[in-house]
Structures are given as C-alpha cells and as structure tokens.
C-alpha cells in the first residue's frame, strides 16, 4: 500500500510531519502513521503556551486497540492547537496533512528531520 508523502514537508522517524510554510511550525502525523493506527477515536493535545523540548511526549492519539504518544520533534512553545480534531478525531484518518494537523510550535526544524524522499524510503522498508 502506498501512502501519501507530500514533498514540501519534513518528517521524523516516529512518523510526525513538520510544515515550515507558515509563521510557526505545524505538526501532525503522517498518512502512514494514521493507517497503522486505524480509526482514530480520541486525541489529546498539548496546551497552548506549553513549552516543549524535542522528544517530549506531548500528545496522545488513540484508536480502538492502540494508544500512541506523539513526540514533538521541535523545541519551543506551543502557539496553537487544532481543537477540531478533539471533536472529530477522524480528521486524522481522512486528512492527516490538512485538517488533521495537531499543533503549532514556535521553533526550528531540527537538523535530523527527514526529507520526503528519505521518509518514503524508510516507510517502504
């Protein structure tokens, strides 16, 4: 099965994506990650204003039979959260790179972030 991996995003080994196209960095989980999880039924987000260090478990995504911690790939302060996914967790399944984003954080894209090509290689392994 092939998964959508947009060329203009950065990725992590743990299947988060980083969009640096706006003022703050926007974070979400990849198409591959949502597919592995199955139907998402519950999302817990960090709080706006919370300071995070890269690698912190800062959000939780639950399906029926699995719980996944989401690790922030970026150090910084949370500037916005997507409350839409709290009411409609299925957005993570239907639109993981769009309306299913999780939070925005004020910080820098880490040096070890993967490009789309490298991430594609990794998920195809």
């Amino acid at each position: 099965m092939t998964h959508e991996i947009p060329d203009d995003l950065h990725y992590t080994d743990s299947h988060e994506w980083i969009d640096d196209g706006g003022d703050a960095l926007r974070i979400g989980i990849t198409d591959f990650a949502q597919d592995e999880l199955g139907d998402v039924v519950f999302v817990e987000l960090p709080e706006e204003g919370e300071s995070l260090n890269s690698g912190d478990a800062c959000a939780v995504v639950e399906s029926i039979k699995a719980v996944s911690d989401i690790y922030t790939p970026v150090t910084g302060t949370v500037t916005a959260t997507n409350d839409g996914v709290l009411d409609q967790p299925e957005l993570l399944n239907t639109d993981p790179y769009g309306e299913g984003w999780l939070f925005e954080i004020d910080g820098q894209v880490p040096d070890d972030a993967l490009g789309a090509t490298d991430y594609r290689e990794q998920t195809e392994e």
Partner: peptide
C-alpha cells in the same frame, strides 16, 4: 458492531 463509533 461498529467499535469505532462506540468509542468516538
């Protein structure tokens, strides 16, 4: 049974 619906 729709388990997803039950949990959402």
């Amino acid at each position: 049974i729709d388990q997803t619906g039950a949990a959402r």
